[in-house]
Write a protein that binds this DNA or RNA. Structure first.
Lengths: 330, 330
DNA sequence: GTGAAAGCGCTAACAC
DNA sequence: GTGTTAGCGCTTTCAC
């Protein structure tokens, strides 16, 4: 079982040279039908599979795609990973998962490694990385797809189209006479600021609502931060009647705290998340949220990577549609 | 930025041979302190990193560990992945995620690939794979760690110790005068049968309860299967007053259906899951469940792999403790 | 304690 | 349409 089968073996059995075997597999130059058949038969007979290490060494291009995200245990990223892997699998490429824990040094180190090992590509959701550094990775020849609300330099980008969904959310909330809107946002030092907050703010005025500075609290994307953020908001003299959250994990934390404090959701305070992580429909009350389709992001990221492999040079942005999902929390 | 730095470059700068650079890095033979310092300085100066493709080609051993699971989007496996990656990261190893969708052919194909590409190791939760096939992988020289309730041949094994937790669950349930115990179990054709069901059954009698054949329904590990399984149970003339579920995903589906049917949980029917997936404390009522510590499984699997790298030959089983977690559903 | 050199398996010029 | 060959960057004998 430990016997390595090489192209040389296949070549011998098929009565051709190793080069021809290589060309049959890659299709990079024409091969006579009869030769092709013989080679394919030999491949099957011997159970040959290309040694990717040798190929990588020779071509300077590995078959690995790094998925660099804050935390793969966040269901949003887990689902993205599944979709990406699914899409890449047919091409013989593998997805390597890398958690950054939202730390800049980890983001940087992982990216550097992707360059050094000549990864086939990188799909990244940067969090604290300076925007320019992704361009450097792309310039070094590693295709980069960023999955984020805002662009990170001139690299391929899967971007949500969230304007309409956010409008719907505001319509929904203001239609129920809620005007004092708060947000439990991400940390202040996240690269690219907080586009979800900015979008909400810029749109709120049109609906006769506002997100005043004193109703914005910040923290990590954790349940704990959601809980303490919500608690803080409830102490404000100008108390919010609707609370948006940077993502669903935060929203669940807020829900925890609301229950603890005896604050009725959505009676007293409407609560709205972002992402539609798998658990959003599991919590009670079920989470009203702005859905970002993780699996579509994964598929589109794979698509962008493929185009790069096929020679595209100019960077490109593709959009995925966000949707306002009304459940019970608002 | 695209400039490759090789050992030869480092050797030139340090004024030694490439072999010495290699030995400094690997520590496989003694190097004079002065030489070591010079080499390390050169490595830092040039920002050298070993080319893993070349190393893999030469040594016949890659730095990749495959995580082969039914679905990485299941929070249990996502958490396992995070822990595994965390643990392996310091050793310069990477985790490749592979979804099998619980299909035997995928399990087989992924395993075969791990052998062909000489992966450093494999962590697998088999589902429909014949037990013997894992031994074949191990025999081919790829360290295998199986994460499953029961052994899959003579390979390393991270096994839950669930007896005590299951006893506690039975005590809890029977202490509340519930004796008609049902289970929504996994599919019949899963390899290794259904150890969770068997354990429950073998213990139930000691608590004056029983899990009669007509109160066992089966399906995939999905929310839908949980819902339809629960619906089916509710039509039984001998209606259960406690329902155990093969995992928490199933339990959530059962909860969905209970709500739909107006069945009070835990009033009419107690509901108990397995795993303690992250969402278990999110659903309402919060899920009472038998917790399997995913992150500990990930860490221990990494540990077992390391021991193999360091030369252990005999297979080994390590245990992780399951715990009965009482929440609101039972 | 260190170096020289072979070779892992593949791809891509360069022949013919 | 096919073969020959060099060499990717590393590890590891073998030699000193």
């Amino acid at each position: 079982m430990g016997e390595r089968v090489t192209m040389a073996d296949v070549a011998r059995v098929a009565g051709v040279s190793a080069a021809t075997v290589s060309y049959v597999i890659s299709g990079k130059r024409p091969v006579a039908p009869a030769t092709r058949v013989a080679v394919e038969a030999a491949i099957d007979e011997l159970g040959f599979a290309v040694n990717t290490a040798a190929r990588t060494l020779r071509t300077g291009r590995s078959s690995l795609v790094a998925l660099i995200v804050p935390n793969i245990a966040n269901p949003f990223f887990a689902q993205l990973a599944a979709a990406l892997q699914e899409e890449l699998r047919g091409l013989g490429m593998h997805v390597v998962v890398c958690n950054t824990w939202a730390r800049r040094d980890e983001e940087r180190a992982l990216l550097a490694e992707a360059v050094q090992q000549r990864f086939a590509g990188v799909v990244v959701t940067p969090f604290r990385l300076p925007a320019g550094e992704l361009e450097a990775v792309a310039a070094a020849g590693v295709p980069v797809v960023v999955s984020a609300d805002v662009p990170f330099g001139r690299v391929d980008h899967v971007a949500p189209e969230a304007r309409t969904a956010t409008r719907r959310a505001l319509e929904h909330v203001t239609g129920r006479q809620r005007r004092r809107i708060a947000m439990i946002a991400g940390p202040r030092d996240a690269t690219g600021g907080d586009p979800r907050l900015e979008l909400l703010r810029s749109l709120a005025l049109q609906y006769g609502a506002a997100v005043p500075r004193e109703l914005v609290v910040r923290g990590e994307h954790t349940r704990e931060a959601g809980a303490s953020g919500f608690a803080e908001l409830m102490t404000r003299p100008y108390r919010p009647d609707a609370v948006f959250c940077g993502n669903d994990v935060i929203a669940v934390g807020a829900l925890d705290k609301a229950r603890e404090l005896g604050v009725d959701v959505p009676g007293e305070v409407a609560l709205i998340g972002h992402d539609d992580a798998s658990f959003a429909s599991l919590v009670r009350p079920q989470l009203t949220t702005i859905r970002y389709p993780a699996d579509e992001v994964g598929r589109k990221a794979a698509r962008l990577l493929l185009e790069r492999f096929n020679g595209r040079e100019v960077h490109k942005t593709v959009r995925v549609q966000a949707h306002f999902v009304v459940r019970a929390s608002a």
